[in-house]
Design a protein around this nucleic acid. Sequence first.
DNA 1: TTGATAAACTAATGGTATTAGTTTATAATA
DNA 2: TATTATAAACTAATACCATTAGTTTATCAA
Lengths: 192, 192
Amino acid sequence: MAGKGLNTDRIVEAAAELIAEKGFDRFSLRELADRLGVKTASLYNHISSLSELTSNIGQLTFERMAGQLYSGTECASSFDTLYHIAIGYRRFAKENPELYKTIVKIPSAGDSGLIEKGQNLVHSLYPVLEACGLSEKDIIHFSRTIRSAMHGFVTLEKAGFFGTMADADESYSYMVETLIRSLKNECGGADR
Amino acid sequence: MAGKGLNTDRIVEAAAELIAEKGFDRFSLRELADRLGVKTASLYNHISSLSELTSNIGQLTFERMAGQLYSGTECASSFDTLYHIAIGYRRFAKENPELYKTIVKIPSAGDSGLIEKGQNLVHSLYPVLEACGLSEKDIIHFSRTIRSAMHGFVTLEKAGFFGTMADADESYSYMVETLIRSLKNECGGADR
DNA sequence: TTGATAAACTAATGGTATTAGTTTATAATA
DNA sequence: TATTATAAACTAATACCATTAGTTTATCAA
């Protein structure tokens, strides 16, 4: 019994599927191994630890997210593109709540692979912001701002911190539109 | 050996201390019990589960945070107050990184105690925003916006997602000032 | 002094990730 | 074709973890 076609990629994908189904905190290597028709210890021939596996799933999640965010949909203006991306960000987080958790799993600091994939996601914003005439520094500042806002919003919303006082969709639009408006003011309303 | 003066509050405070020292993910009931001079099982006479304990620590953290954010420091304008609060928010998160994690521990949805304490923290923003002349709905929207931005920023920063391309302090100021500026535009620059 | 109670205890259960050492089947080589 | 090396599976054990059941013990009230 040596060789069932198992490899790291298949493990990562199966783990992502299992997390999506059962929830991030109810995930275990035992159940993953069961699903792959193998004993728990055998996984260690392909992965080095649970935290490394979690990181790989986070990276996969970033890739899928980037794929969804930047697919098709040419927009009339850079601002519309930005709006489109922001809406897509929240949609992905809502559609993949458990997977989303893996991208900010507690000790991601020092996890260069995960961080790089995260950078890739946000780097795609740069051309859009450059087209608005922002300085190099302000591009960084603004992308950190909107990224923080988006991530914070979906996290707090999911955690139940927004009550019923106002519709969350409306709040999200308000937030994104506020940030885009500030951008328009910054570059004097110019586009392209 | 019945009665060492142990109670829920002492347990919660000791646990908060332990988490601050050892880190949220390296926390265990065994070590907590050790520190309290008691066996692990004995803790269950005062708490009902680990997750309930974690929630209590989160609530304590919210209270401490609120205490630091709204202490003294009368500001010249509502906008200055807002700025002051935002700066304090990040300072607290940086000074108490491990405790900060407890306020958004994964399954906080449905944890009414924790959510209420979180509401208390943000409710204190309302008078400030009201003084700016915002509508009832916009007060909710804006407070969700700035809260998302603050929480997202400190989370992503701690996780290492901001590189070295720009100073994080500068980015945070940029973010907060951008939001406050949008508020000024909203209410026509009026204050008080 | 007796009795109730709250808070400690011991001991066990079932779960977790992880490691060491062993077997086995496949793939490459002689 | 026979041999050997290797990768990938296995078994078994370790050291944690939270939690529960049942038991003892000390204090406080009747």
